[in-house]
């Protein structure tokens, strides 16, 4: 991946910590000396809706919004959201997908159907075969705090971004309350390890 410019989407469901994660990416990129733009679309409520954060690291464009077909890195906290935003991937881009399904209400009440893993995979692979699935939710649960999922996903993504581990951790320390900092730092480390083991690059 080009070191100078990375167009990145972080997507998930309201409450999963997408915005905090993308804030930390943006702040870390700034500390690492890059220009950065970030914009979020989170609809009207606080919880449960589809959330997307656009991040432009480096100076490829002027608009904070990234166009469809131009994303280099998609980090999805949930499978359906990965499929939903996959049209933003450029050919051959990297997608890191948390292997976890959160069923929308319409699926729960039976009016719509959640796509199967094969369907999600087929949709993603129309754009890229560099799709990596990680067990973020399971790992976060093992750590005793499912809310650390976002830092686990950051850890996986960090392998693809030109930012030192030290910088990531400094930015996390600034944004995360001290009472839950350690478990989040651990989640980041585990995510990074999972990325290395899974050969994400």
């Amino acid at each position: 991946m080009s070191i100078r410019n990375v167009d990145m989407l972080v997507v998930g469901v309201g409450g999963q910590g997408v915005i905090l994660a993308s804030d930390i990416v943006a702040e870390a990129a700034l500390v690492a000396g890059y220009d950065v733009k970030k914009t979020d679309s989170l609809g009207m409520a606080q919880r449960g809706g589809s959330v997307v954060s656009h991040l432009r690291i480096g100076q490829r464009g002027w608009s904070p919004l990234i166009r469809q077909g131009e994303v280099d890195l998609l980090v999805a906290f949930e499978k359906l959201e990965a499929a939903r935003w996959s049209s933003y991937l450029r050919n051959g881009a990297v997608a890191i997908v948390n292997n976890h399904a959160l069923r929308p209400l319409s699926v729960n009440v039976g009016t719509e159907r959640y796509p199967s893993d094969e369907e999600v995979s087929d949709i993603m692979r129309q754009r890229s075969d560099r799709v990596y699935t990680v067990n973020g939710t399971a790992k976060a649960r093992q750590l005793g705090n499912t809310r650390t999922l976002n830092m686990f996903m950051l850890g996986c993504s960090s392998l693809l971004l030109p930012i030192e581990v030290q910088t990531w951790k400094e930015c996390m320390t600034q944004r995360i309350p001290s009472s839950i900092l350690q478990v989040n730092l651990t989640a980041f480390d585990q995510g990074r390890k999972e990325g290395l083991d899974g050969n994400i690059r």
Binding site: G43, G49, S50, L80, A83, P104, L105, S106, V107, R113
Partner: peptide, 8 residues
């Protein structure tokens, strides 16, 4: 794909 509108 199923939509995901905001919820209470």
């Amino acid at each position: 794909l199923p939509r995901r509108p905001p919820l209470l």
